[in-house]
Simulated assay, not measured.
Amino acid sequence: MIDPATGETLVYIAERVSQHFANVLYFDLGRYLIAAGGMTILLFVFGSWAKARRIQRDRTAKRSDYIREVASSFRTILVFAVVTLATLVGREFGVIKLSLQEAPLITVAWHFALIVVAHDAWFYWIHRAMHSKALFRATHLHHHKSRTPTPWTAYSFTTIEAVLEVAFVPLFLLVTSQLGIAYAGFAIFLYLWHQIIRNVMAHAGSELFPAGWVDNPLTDWIATTTHHDLHHSSGYNYGFYFTWWDRWMGTEHPRYKEEFRANAKPLISFGTRAAHASERA
């Protein structure tokens, strides 16, 4: 059959769609494997460094936890790929304005900042909603089976939660398109990598941020590993990138800063010890 609008065969169109789907699937799978795998390797290579900063010292993830997390993450990646493909189709039909051309650095910068701030707000509110009695079991309980998070927990979602998480991007682009903004594709690319890297960092299990982070007004608004780890063991801390919403809404863990101080260490503490050893010699 021939598409009268384009003259292309439906078989050819189906092949193009399949190829696009394969590309976005590989991209989402690659992001997950690189980020989660890379963090796992770093925590293993710098084992003593990570152990000194371990957040849940009396509990470790089991083999069954890793298997569950990876298996459900593959399902999440499949959902993400479907929605990403739908977003690209929306662009082809002109519903979504997404520019794949080069954009000025300042444009990429403010587009990136805007989508990160908007996603943080989206995450906070859908996260709180999923913790309601009506939704928790069907949407978010699976993620909380990982009481001791690992880097592989990042995408361990139910299908419903995966849809809610990934729906942000097309909805955000629909809104910005209505405002006449042709969003820079490179800003979206940076956002997607930022999202998975921060996600893996939040579930690392060891505090990756240096001592003093929560006591400096220039940095304490950026959420740490302890911030999200506490969420997995308490009913607090629903934010993702920032601490703003938790503080505004009174949902920040009352002992968050104390817990962070107990877990965090100076990033260059090993250098200090070496210097002291040299002085003694």
Rank of each mutant, 00 (worst) to 15 (best):
A14F: 14
V17H: 11
Q19H: 13
Q19W: 08
D28A: 12
D28T: 11
Y32C: 02
Y32F: 15
M39R: 11
F46G: 02
S48V: 08
R53E: 01
R53A: 02
R54I: 10
I55N: 05
R57M: 08
R57K: 12
D58K: 05
R59A: 15
K62M: 13
D65G: 01
I67Q: 07
S72R: 12
L78M: 11
V83A: 06
T84S: 15
T84V: 05
L85S: 12
A86W: 03
F93T: 13
A103L: 05
W110H: 06
A113I: 03
V116I: 06
A121M: 08
Y124M: 02
I126S: 00
A129K: 08
F136V: 04
H140N: 09
K145G: 00
S156M: 03
I160T: 12
V175C: 03
Y183K: 12
G185T: 07
F186K: 07
Q195W: 09
M201R: 13
A202G: 14
H203V: 09
S206I: 09
S206H: 09
L218E: 00
D220V: 08
W221L: 08
A223P: 04
T226M: 11
D229Y: 08
L230T: 03
H232M: 04
F240H: 10
F242N: 00
G250A: 01
T251S: 06
Y256K: 08
E259P: 02
L267F: 12
G271C: 09
A281E: 09
